[in-house]
Amino acid sequence: MTMLGEALLQRLSATPLFAVALTLTAYLVAMALLKRLGRPPWLPAIVLATALLVGALVLTGMDYTTYQEGARWLTVLLGPATVALGMPLYQLLPRIRQLWRPLAVCLPISATMAIVYALGIAWLMGATPETIASLAAKSVTAPIAIGITEQIGGNVSLLLGALLVTGVAAIGFVSLAARQMNITDERIIGFALGVNGHALGTVRAFEIGPTAGAFASLGMSLTGTFTALLLPLAWRLVV
């Protein structure tokens, strides 16, 4: 029976459908657990889903390379999903136009600081050039960040880990800062989540409200565009 089960698992793991089904199942289970826990802001669904997925891979004996190959179909959907976030922006375009001046001022500063402090800390801790390059785009949404990292010579796997840590940390710190500074404006909170927490922050913003979600989408999109245009150029000039 054990041999039969192992043979069946090997046949299933050889198909992309198994990795996709495993990923979706982990996410749905995580959402159900979070609903029971009251959806705490410090615990995004993707973190719990990742932990469940790692446990499933360990239990099934499936190596990460095989899983990654199968789950590549889901990665392809990141691009269209990011583009789809333009719909909330269109719906709130009049409100966004009213704030274009402060947004235009704070975005370059915020996006630049997100890069500089990460690279500065990594450099002070003696990180290798590849590690530093892998952390440069950690505040940008994954489809754009992957392209930037490949262009400047970073490691995509390390980048993906940095994206997860950055998104989770941004959710916690933005929520804490909003509470401490008594900020209740969804536009400010949403924009901060989008600029600093990319897709994870945007998901959290939509849980707060549609206005926060729209401004998070704006912050994420503008940060991605700004970084994609200037980071590779600045990297060549400096490195």
Rank of each mutant, 00 (worst) to 15 (best):
L8P: 12
L9C: 00
Q10G: 15
R11A: 15
P16G: 04
L22W: 01
L22P: 00
T23N: 07
L24P: 03
A26S: 15
Y27H: 11
Y27V: 15
L28G: 01
A30P: 09
M31F: 11
M31E: 14
A32T: 14
L34V: 08
L34D: 09
K35D: 12
K35V: 03
K35S: 12
R36H: 05
L37A: 15
R39S: 14
R39D: 15
P40G: 05
P40S: 09
W42K: 07
L43Q: 11
P44L: 07
A45E: 11
I46P: 02
I46K: 01
L48Y: 03
A51I: 12
L52M: 04
L52S: 01
L53I: 03
L57T: 00
L57R: 00
L57M: 10
V58L: 15
V58D: 14
M62E: 06
D63I: 09
T66E: 08
Q68H: 11
Q68A: 15
Q68P: 03
R72S: 13
V76H: 11
V76Y: 14
L78G: 09
L78C: 07
G79W: 10
A84P: 10
L85Y: 03
L85H: 04
P88K: 00
L92M: 06
L92Q: 13
P94V: 07
I96H: 03
I96A: 05
Q98C: 09
L99S: 13
P102F: 08
P102T: 11
A104N: 06
V105C: 08
C106A: 12
L107V: 08
P108A: 06
P108V: 08
P108R: 10
I109Q: 06
M113F: 14
A114G: 15
I115Y: 07
V116D: 02
V116L: 10
L119H: 00
L119I: 12
G120M: 06
I121E: 02
A122D: 04
A122V: 11
M125G: 03
M125Y: 14
G126T: 12
P129F: 04
E130M: 14
S134C: 05
L135H: 04
L135M: 11
A142M: 13
I144D: 05
A145F: 11
A145L: 10
A145S: 14
I148M: 08
E150K: 09
E150D: 13
G153F: 01
G153T: 12
V156D: 02
L158H: 04
L159M: 10
G161D: 09
L164H: 10
V165E: 03
V165P: 09
V168F: 05
V168L: 09
F173K: 01
V174P: 00
S175T: 14
A177W: 07
A177C: 10
A178D: 05
G190W: 09
A192H: 03
N196L: 12
N196M: 13
A199T: 13
L200N: 09
T202H: 02
R204C: 05
A205M: 01
F206A: 04
F206V: 06
E207T: 13
I208K: 12
A214T: 01
F215E: 05
L222F: 14
T223G: 12
G224N: 09
T225L: 15
T225M: 15
T227G: 11
A228W: 10
L231C: 10
A234D: 08
A234G: 08
W235G: 02
W235S: 09
R236P: 08
